[in-house]
Design a protein around this nucleic acid. Structure first.
Ligand code: MN
Ligand code: MN
Ligand code: MN
Ligand code: MN
Lengths: 245, 245
DNA sequence: ACAATAAGTTAGTACGCACTAACTTATTTC
DNA sequence: GAAATAAGTTAGTGCGTACTAACTTATTGT
């Protein structure tokens, strides 16, 4: 009874619930935790501006939210220095990421979505889907360990393969590599890459690289391609055995 | 760019969008429209208190929201007299109901949910699922015309079978009837009824009715049952040919 | 070392959406 | 038809989340 302001996954409807309940986070708070997690993967604390940019909001808004998240014990903030997730904040982030990736997998495998076009839908559903629903989806998929973009799916307990991958942009000339993962953000970019055969699993060899973020030439199977630095940075690879030319 | 406060289905993320876009309603606004629609099915405008009760919020909150919805042209409010949906408000309500019912159907048919246990999940997902996703779900189900509780599914254009059904509570003694639909709100109640064989499609006959909202005796197949007035009001029926005893 | 620039914070504002308390209008009952 | 009750509205408040503008702190380049 008596729904408290702006609750997301708590089902304000006639669902009377005697027990206090953990008080669900809002969609926004969850998304903050997720981008902080992702930025932190880069090694350093998440800077205000980076969070703001990822979320498409003003830096000032982030300062405010970080204080709230700190008050909730979900992040540790050092003023002028950025935010780090606490253990509980990290768990929430990883569970959200789990929901996101399982949903993406489900949409692609069971409902015919293209993997280049699934991110935005998942970005909303991840906040509305219960853990139960997500587990059912995972079961229906045979509990996959990676999503359609090759990103690893965290377990319910929040365990995930966190090894850092090199992107094409990091590859030395002559390297042979297998695409294991791609960014999922920009459908346009993903379609562009897909059309060129650059998809998870593809094997490629870096032929040449122009300086100053210039074009990168590579072979994908038979074909020769040339892509820009931004596109190259969105494709994560694992070097294959033969590293010479 | 520049996400406006508290947007629900609009995807505030890095999704740059040049066109202004229809500015999505919030979860709350959508749910208001839905309950107004449902109350209006009773024939009269939706009273403030009825809306408040359905949503589990205070009447004062409803007064405020009704003004906002009126400002948006989604309802027509007569002070002290209740609210009616405008044409555009009704369309939004029906599209939401469509999403809700298709989602419920999908969860039951494709993910093994019980029809007694699916409402709350749908209550959240209906606001996050795009029309595209819902259409894909509907396709995967063969475009059903009713949900697991027997409720008709509106078309994309907002057409729906709106005939009023009698509930068991309305049946005269001796009547034979087929269950075509049940309320979806209370899982407990639904489980109770299911255990007694009272499910969509069941044929029953009203044997006896005690006055003052007393117990209602009926036969369900072979078995004899006796249920209370509240339970009886949650089961909608269609009288069968033979109406005598 | 210090000025210029970038990054971050605070203050003030706004809106959505809830609440309670107090008041007003409508309906019901004697 | 006036009093009692129910229904509905307004006023004032609080929280979440965004904004812009103005200020402060950190970093960098000379
Ligand atoms: Mn994604
Ligand atoms: Mn999201
Ligand atoms: Mn339902
Ligand atoms: Mn809902």
């Amino acid at each position: 009874m008596s729904a408290r302001a702006t609750d997301e996954r708590s089902g304000a409807h006639s669902t009377h619930r005697a027990v206090p309940r953990e008080k669900a986070l809002t969609r926004q708070a969850e998304d903050y935790l997720k981008v902080i997690y992702e930025i932190e993967q880069g090694g350093s604390p998440a800077a205000t501006t980076d969070i703001a940019e990822q979320l498409g909001i003003a830096a000032a808004s982030v300062s405010g939210m970080l204080q709230r998240l700190a008050r909730l014990g979900l992040v540790k903030v050092e003023r002028y220095r950025g935010a780090r997730l606490s253990a509980s904040g990290r768990l929430i982030a990883l569970q959200l990421i789990r929901r996101h990736r399982i949903i993406e997998s489900f949409l692609v495998t069971k409902l015919g979505y293209g993997w280049d076009d699934v991110h935005e839908e998942a970005e909303r559903l991840e906040h509305a889907a219960s853990a139960d629903l997500v587990d059912r989806m995972a079961d229906a998929l045979g509990n996959p360990t990676a999503d359609p973009h090759g990103a690893p799916i965290p377990t319910v307990a929040g365990r995930v393969d966190e090894r850092r991958l090199a992107s094409i942009a990091d590859l030395p000339v002559g390297a042979r590599a297998r695409v294991v993962r791609m960014s999922d953000r920009d459908p346009e970019l993903l379609r562009y890459l897909k059309k060129r055969g650059i998809v998870p699993g593809a094997i490629l060899r870096l032929v040449e690289r122009e300086p100053f973020d210039g074009p990168i030439s590579l072979t994908v199977g038979r074909a020769k391609q040339s892509i820009g630095a931004t596109a190259a940075a969105a494709v994560y690879v694992e070097k294959s055995a033969r590293t010479d030319r």
